[in-house]
Design a protein around this nucleic acid. Structure first.
Length: 223
DNA sequence: CGTTTTTGACCAGCGC
DNA sequence: GCGCTGGTCAAAAACG
């Protein structure tokens, strides 16, 4: 597991994210601007992505995280993106991978970690509903809610422990679409916005028609 | 007046 | 069992 920097990797990793999540957190028809223009669109923008393929309904032992190789040169960093008690073990595993706490060549250690994960999965089976896949990224942004092409309704806000900034909870307004997202600011750096998507959209972005009226390759990305 | 946001209450999971 | 915490509900308020 490594960190993907959106402002470059979206050019290279879109297909992987699409395959993993079943949707992109931005408009699928988006035409990405040339990389060289990117700084002009989003000054100082820097985002990282983590993709979860966890599924607690399955007993198959597999890494809950897909290893997405960053082509950005190993300067990755990981936030404590998702600290829900249910998934904290998965996040810890990813954190360990990224922070280099795990010895890469230690097969036994890796297998042990997988066993621990499997045990936790087994424990959860039967009393936990299927956890939707999750997708997290951080973005340097003035605004909390980034335009991703979908329409969201806020259904809650919570002050999380050890943070000054509240976390907001949103649900997709589309009928029969159960996708949710959380938005919060990073405690260590309030300029950074952490967005967590949960679930898969079963429809296209709601503002796609509007976008097609005035097509601009620069709109409807993360900012 | 319909839709969205706000916000306190409630609930479930977890650690002790 | 109890307290803490994160996530959700839902009534009221705000908005367009």
């Amino acid at each position: 597991m490594s960190t993907i920097f959106v402002n470059q990797s979206c050019y290279e990793e879109q297909d992987q994210i699409q395959a993993q999540m079943g949707f992109l957190p931005f408009s699928p028809n988006l035409t990405l601007p040339p990389l060289k223009d990117f700084t002009a669109i989003a000054p100082n923008s820097l985002s990282s992505v983590a993709v979860s393929s966890e599924n607690f309904a399955t007993t198959t032992v597999k890494k809950p995280w897909q290893d997405l190789t960053s082509s950005f040169g190993g300067g990755g960093q990981l936030l404590s993106l998702n600290r829900s008690s249910v998934n904290s073990w998965a996040w810890r595993e990813v954190t360990d991978c990224i922070m280099g706490k795990r010895n890469e060549g230690d097969e036994h250690h890796q297998q042990q970690q997988l066993r621990v994960s499997a045990m936790k999965m087994k424990k959860m089976k039967g009393r936990r509903k299927v956890r939707e896949p999750r997708f997290c990224f951080k973005t340097l942004s003035e605004v909390d809610v980034l335009d991703d092409g979908y329409k969201w309704r806020k259904y809650g806000q919570k002050v999380v422990k050890n943070t000054q900034h509240p976390r907001s909870y949103y649900r997709c307004t589309q009928d029969n679409c159960r996708v949710k997202k959380r938005v919060e600011r990073l405690a260590e750096d309030p300029r950074m916005v952490i967005t967590t998507y949960e679930g898969r959209h079963a429809h296209f972005p709601s503002n796609e028609l509007e976008e097609s009226q005035s097509p601009s390759p620069f709109t409807n990305f993360f900012w």
